[in-house]
Design a protein around this nucleic acid. Structure first.
Lengths: 258, 258
DNA sequence: CGAACGATTGACCGGCATCAAACTCGGTGG
DNA sequence: CCACCGAGTTTGATGCCGGTCAATCGTTCG
């Protein structure tokens, strides 16, 4: 509902003429565009929980990187049906689906106060090169190619969702989701074992395409089996292998011999 | 099982030193790389039905364009479960998911004898520009940006699959599939109303993540409702609007007044 | 304290998977 | 020419997962 223009902008540009938003960013070491000289520097921006980074139909203004916080993206079809299409953790990218049409295809909303970096597409257009990717052994490559690789990974990831959404039971979908989230939390610098779910049960259910009640039942069930601990939104993974199983473990110990 | 290397190669290069595979291609007008001068020209290749263009794990050798024929792509997970991830018609692209990792992530098999063009990534790397895209009003742009836009569209399309797979009933999924196929057939130069399904019921079922029997029943059901005609693999769409509905139309005419 | 919202839990039932069997069609060999 | 076979498809019968409806509970906030 709110236009992205209403959000708070923090333009580091204001202070020093050529300073980029990257000054002091803790993610510089893994960022492909950090400290790059350009007429179109990245723009840092803080988004309060519940506010959107952009909305579907907004004019494409660049690729986004999450510096801190937690966001969800979702689309609304012609009938008004909502589909959560992803969650975004620090270090991850979003907004790539807007390049071709010139406008973003989904809405992205902060679930927690978040800091993001918007990287204008022009920044990839130049002849600048980076050697950060892949930690050294590869040769320097133009930034546009970095973007292409990034999008290639996104496509691969989306294809994996075919398996998850189509072939798996609700339980395995849910378990795979928790495991994926855990790994990405770890990659973002958090604990992969114990973390807080920033999204509601409704968001999880929508994302996994199951009923809200099913998600609730699955939390309860996995907790009862000892695979996780869950209290409100505080989650702890205890047995990640059990997450990917379909059947609850047989309780052989309860059977008397014979 | 078979390596892509076993497939038949037709290298136009053999005849004239700098001639590309594009000579005589009927799709030149819509192809972003047609007749481009380069040290790495596109490679045309014919693939017999049942043979693969490449397999998962093969070293990435370029983006593919379908010149003629019909192909399917599918992945096999660690448990050996197959998931059909897409079908490819003349004029369409595939293989983009292999860019980042350096090897293709899925298998692509011809369902009918097909002619494809493999475009080395280096071809996009150069400073060559094309103005074909968008039919004129836009300015010339580097080829790499064309590729980025192409991938952006792929990402958007995959995201749409979230809606289809997750939120829709088997019937609507099936209807949406037929409609999508019809539109793409039309875009490829065939009739969008009457065409032959190149894939088996099993492929369709796998792609839509429903049981084979369900697909068969849906063909029968839609035929009975008059929305389609189906005989073996000859399909005719009669009422595309009915395809997207969930419920069979009420037969009010059968009710006597009152 | 009551309202509002999110989450949990229970009861019911319908869509679709699964199991099972028959049918069609093309190919092959006697 | 027909018998036989196998792959692909159709059709029927049955059962279960998960959606839907509904009631209750816990927490937060005005």
């Amino acid at each position: 509902m709110n236009s992205a223009a209403q959000n708070i902008f923090i333009l580091n540009k204001g202070r020093q003429e050529r300073a980029s938003a990257c000054t002091g960013c803790t993610k510089q070491s893994s960022c492909p565009v950090a400290d790059l000289e350009s007429a179109s520097p990245p723009v840092q921006r803080v988004i309060q929980a519940g506010k959107t980074a952009y909305e579907a139909g907004d004019r494409f203004g660049g690729i986004y990187i999450v510096r801190s916080g937690f966001l969800k993206s979702y689309a609304i079809d012609t009938d008004g049906v909502v589909q959560v299409t992803g969650f975004h953790l620090p270090g991850e990218f979003f907004g790539m689906d807007g390049i071709e049409t010139g406008q973003y295809g989904d809405h992205v909303e902060a679930l927690d106060t978040s800091s993001v970096c918007r990287i204008p597409l022009e920044l990839f257009n130049g002849t600048s090169r980076t050697a950060k990717e892949g930690a050294g052994t590869e040769q320097a490559q133009p930034l546009m190619l970095t973007l292409v690789k990034l999008m290639s990974r996104t496509i691969s990831g989306d294809r994996n969702m075919f398996f998850t959404l189509g072939k798996m039971s609700a339980r395995r979908r849910f378990g795979a989701f928790l495991k994926d989230l855990s790994e990405r939390m770890a990659k973002s610098g958090y604990s992969g074992e114990t973390f807080t779910l920033c999204m509601s049960r409704t968001d999880i259910a929508n994302y996994l395409c199951v009923a809200l009640e099913t998600v609730s039942r699955l939390f309860t069930q996995l907790h009862a089996e000892g695979a996780i601990s869950i209290d409100r939104r505080q989650l702890r993974l205890r047995d990640t292998a059990a997450l990917l199983r379909d059947d609850p473990p047989k309780r052989d110990r309860l059977r008397v011999t014979g």
